[in-house]
Simulated assay, not measured.
Amino acid sequence: MTDELDRMFAEFHGEISRLQGLQHEIEEIRGRGAAAEGRIVAETTMTGALAALTIDPRAMRLGSGELAEAILAAATAAAQDAADRARALMEPFTPDELR
């Protein structure tokens, strides 16, 4: 009986460690998205917060409205990329019926 409990405890401890590692990996996720033919590149965190924005000087030729739309498109693509990356990391922990 003790051997079985020890085995179960070790298995439980291993799962907790794996979940803690997953949490850390998810916190580190950064999604990338581009727009305006790659002249605008956005990077977001898992929560969708903008973490980085690169604007190629050639993008400055766009009008202000077009530039704003391109920035939003890049940020949206980056947030989707981050969500996709998180989903891929969580897949091994997700029951089949929820996939």
Rank of each mutant, 00 (worst) to 15 (best):
I26W: 00
R32T: 15
I55P: 01
G33V: 10
D56V: 10
H24I: 09
E27G: 14
G31A: 11
I55W: 06
L22E: 09
L19I: 13
T45L: 10
A34H: 08
E37T: 13
T54D: 13
R32N: 09
I16G: 00
E43P: 04
G33F: 12
M46C: 02
E15S: 11
E15N: 08
I16N: 08
R30Q: 13
I26K: 05
Q20F: 00
R18T: 08
A36D: 09
H24W: 00
L19S: 04
R39G: 07
T47S: 15
T45A: 13
G14W: 06
R39W: 07
A52K: 11
G33E: 12
D56Y: 10
E27Y: 01
I55L: 15
A52E: 13
I40F: 06
T44F: 03
T54I: 13
G21D: 12
R39H: 12
R39T: 08
L50P: 00
I29C: 06
E28Q: 14
A36Q: 03
G38W: 12
A35E: 06
E28H: 07
E37A: 15
G21F: 01
I16W: 01
I29L: 13
L50G: 04
H24R: 14
L22K: 07
G21R: 09
R18Y: 07
R32Q: 13
I40V: 15
E27W: 01
V41S: 11
A36G: 10
A51D: 10
H24A: 15
I40S: 05
V41H: 08
G48E: 06
T47L: 12
R39C: 08
A35C: 07
E28L: 13
T47M: 12
A42D: 07
M46N: 03
A42I: 08
T44Y: 02
A51G: 01
A49P: 00
A36E: 11
A42Q: 03
I55V: 15
G48D: 06
A34R: 10
G33K: 10
G38R: 11
I26A: 13
A36S: 09
G33H: 12
R30Y: 02
L22N: 04
E15L: 15
A35G: 07
T47Y: 01
A34P: 01
A34E: 15
T44M: 03
R18Q: 14
A34F: 04
G33I: 10
V41P: 02
A49F: 01
A52F: 05
G48F: 08
A35K: 02
E25N: 11
I16R: 12
L50N: 04
L19H: 01
I55K: 04
V41I: 15
I26S: 05
E27P: 00
I16K: 12
L50T: 05
Q20Y: 02
A34K: 11
H24N: 09
S17I: 05
A42W: 01
R18M: 11
D56L: 09
E28T: 12
T44W: 02
D56G: 09
L19Q: 13
R32G: 05
I40R: 03
I29W: 00
G38H: 13
E37Q: 11
R18F: 03
E27H: 06
Q20G: 06
A49R: 05
T44H: 04
I16F: 02
G31W: 03
L53P: 01
I26E: 08
E25Y: 01
A36P: 02
A49H: 06
A42R: 03
M46H: 03
E15T: 14
G31E: 03
V41G: 07
H24D: 14
T45E: 10
T47P: 00
I55N: 01
A36Y: 05
